[in-house]
Computed example of a mutant assay.
Amino acid sequence: MAMLGVILPGLPTTEFVLLAAWAASRSSPWLAAWLENHRLFGPLLRDWKNGGLIARRTKWVASLAMLLALSVLLLTVNHMPSVLFAAAGIGCGALFIWSRPENPKAG
């Protein structure tokens, strides 16, 4: 589902990756270790596991992807209530992402 979310506007990607990582960690220690040591997903998952951190670069990439998805919707969907509903969801997602801390708190 996460792979589909990369190419389909409105279908979330990050949530499915996080859900898969959580399920994998509960059912397969090997798969959980593989995900945490993965070149692409590993740092993101370790940051999330260690305090819900999201790197600034990741926030920008996610925001640009959401903007691109909203642009595709605006250009291809004629039903404005659907576009506004999607825009509200995208806005909530962006607010959540930008509300997350970026660096571990010193302490």
Rank of each mutant, 00 (worst) to 15 (best):
W48I: 05
S82K: 06
W34K: 14
S25Q: 09
G10Y: 03
W34D: 10
A21N: 05
L11Y: 05
F85K: 08
A21R: 04
L44D: 07
L44Y: 08
M1C: 11
L68K: 13
V17E: 01
L70R: 01
I97E: 04
H79D: 10
P9S: 07
S25M: 07
N37R: 15
L70Q: 04
A69E: 02
P81N: 05
A88W: 07
A2S: 12
K105L: 15
T76G: 00
A86F: 06
G93Y: 01
N37D: 14
A21P: 01
V83K: 04
R26L: 15
L95Y: 11
I54D: 00
R39T: 12
G5H: 01
M66H: 05
V6G: 08
A87D: 03
G93F: 00
L95I: 03
F41G: 01
A55S: 13
S82C: 06
A86G: 01
I7P: 00
T14R: 09
H79R: 13
E36G: 11
A65W: 07
S28A: 10
L44C: 08
H79V: 11
H79K: 11
S82Q: 09
P43Y: 01
H79E: 06
L11K: 04
S63K: 01
L73M: 15
F16V: 10
W34C: 10
S27N: 13
A65K: 11
L73A: 12
R100V: 04
L53H: 00
P29E: 14
H38D: 15
L8M: 12
A2P: 07
L75W: 05
F96C: 09
V83Y: 00
F96K: 07
A32C: 09
H38C: 08
E102A: 08
L4P: 08
A106V: 12
L40C: 10
A55P: 05
S99M: 03
L44Q: 08
W48A: 10
W30D: 15
R57C: 08
I7G: 03
G42Y: 02
F96Y: 15
K49P: 08
T13H: 11
P101C: 06
L84S: 07
L44N: 06
M1H: 14
E102F: 07
P104Y: 04
V77Y: 00
L64N: 13
S28Q: 10
E102S: 14
G107M: 08
R39N: 07
R100D: 03
G89V: 00
E15F: 10
M80E: 14
L18R: 05
A88L: 13
L45F: 03
P43A: 06
I90D: 01
W60E: 12
W22H: 15
E102C: 09
A106N: 12
G42K: 00
E36P: 03
G93P: 00
A86W: 04
M80R: 11
W34P: 05
K49H: 14
A106L: 13
V77N: 02
L73N: 02
V6D: 09
